[in-house]
Design a protein around this nucleic acid. Structure first.
Lengths: 221, 221
DNA sequence: CATTAGTCATCCAATTATGAGCCATATATA
DNA sequence: TATATATGGCTCATAATTGGATGACTAATG
């Protein structure tokens, strides 16, 4: 404890969390030293690390500031997302995806509906679990694409990378029986049917039900 | 138990699970030895294995670090998020923030509530617009943090970086009058009050109303 | 008996941490 | 304008930390 490396990691995480937004000033070196009960030289070494990483800029007489252009944040975001628990994942999916489906019902083009339909069919037709997982992820992503919201699409893509983590795959494998597969397939089709009918409420409800089922099966009811 | 192979496998799994991210420093050999109640030489043998596998790098006087690994191409998340339109952004916020507030009402600790309250006060007390924006972003992030879902937190942090884009700031500046500020402040307080009362539905409704107002004002009603 | 792995103890070399002081620049105050 | 204060930049001597390496001893195994 108390090493410059630990402090650097600490501050880096705090910046990621938004403790100080871009352009904001950090506490002074002397304050950080006193607060963390380490020598000022150690603080300076940590700040130097972060400055070399481009996370901070420092000015004599003014202070230390979070860099305007925080490029590496993207890596950190997804890296920490991958550590989210399956419970977290299902919770956010339950928040985002039904709403996304409702938007998609209103906005999907004919081609997009066709893409969704194909992904739905391919999921059901997949012969092994990895193939099934891939098509399942594509199905959900296709719906978010049809919602035509750039942030929703990126969110779903991020979710899909999380879904490919080991822990998640193991959990899913453990519970996926043949009859459960058929249930999931039927739920997918229900979602697609509502989208095709431009039934926003129906699409929302169908996807909501699907994720609820997933959650119950995977996390235990 | 206690063999160097077991420890190596152990540490390897912990790295996979994200106990230490790439570039982060592991505990010292002496600490690992004491913690696992094995001899330091045994720890060294395990670390040597992992070093040979390329999972770790070691430096005299500095410590043991998780090796940097190639980051998949799918992780260019927020770079593309920054291209999202204000309409997209508000649409997504309307989807997840009210739900996050509902979760926060149930899960927030006393300290987290205090952090939210302070952010709320600082937003109202901010003297200039940049300061106000910073505290406003912090207010919303603090609520998501209280919801205790890692993905929600990351997503909100990403949203906050998007919010700092020029286009977004200009849009907000253009419409932000003094009376509108007071309305926003009052809405913030309503959200906090509901959170404090552990009123999930109230918090959801209050934040929903707030973002609806934002959307109407910023995008034009 | 030979082999292998673990424990304990000790020393070494590289790096970091501490504490103190002084400098240069920027900002606030009189 | 002139002075005072705050802040980052820098140096130095000393202490503490940390991985690297070795040797003596023990226990289990074939």
């Amino acid at each position: 404890m108390g090493s410059s490396y630990d402090l650097a990691a600490n501050l880096s995480h705090m910046i990621d969390d938004g403790a100080w937004l871009t352009g904001e000033r950090l506490p002074t070196e002397r304050t950080l030293a006193e607060h963390h009960r380490i020598a000022r030289n150690t603080v300076r070494r940590a700040l130097k690390l972060l400055e070399q990483q481009g996370r901070l800029t420092r000015h004599v007489g003014r202070g230390t500031f979070v860099s305007e252009r925080a490029i590496p944040a993207t890596h950190l975001i997804s890296a920490r997302m991958e550590q989210a628990s399956p419970a977290d994942l299902l919770e956010v999916r339950l928040i985002f995806e039904p709403q996304g489906a409702a938007l998609a019902a209103a906005r999907a083009s004919a081609e997009e509906l066709d893409t969704i339909r194909r992904a739905c069919q391919q999921t059901a037709a997949a012969r092994d679990l990895p193939a099934r997982e891939i098509w399942d992820a594509r199905f959900h992503l296709a719906i978010m694409r049809a919602a035509k919201n750039a942030l929703l699409i990126e969110y779903c893509a991020a979710i899909n990378t999380v879904r490919q983590q080991r822990l998640w795959s193991r959990l899913k494998q453990r519970t996926l029986t043949a009859e459960l597969q058929h249930l999931y397939d039927a739920q997918h089709e229900a979602v697609f049917a509502a989208l095709k009918d431009r039934d926003a409420e129906g699409a929302r409800a169908a996807l909501h039900q699907h994720i609820i089922t997933l959650r119950n099966k995977i996390l235990g009811e």
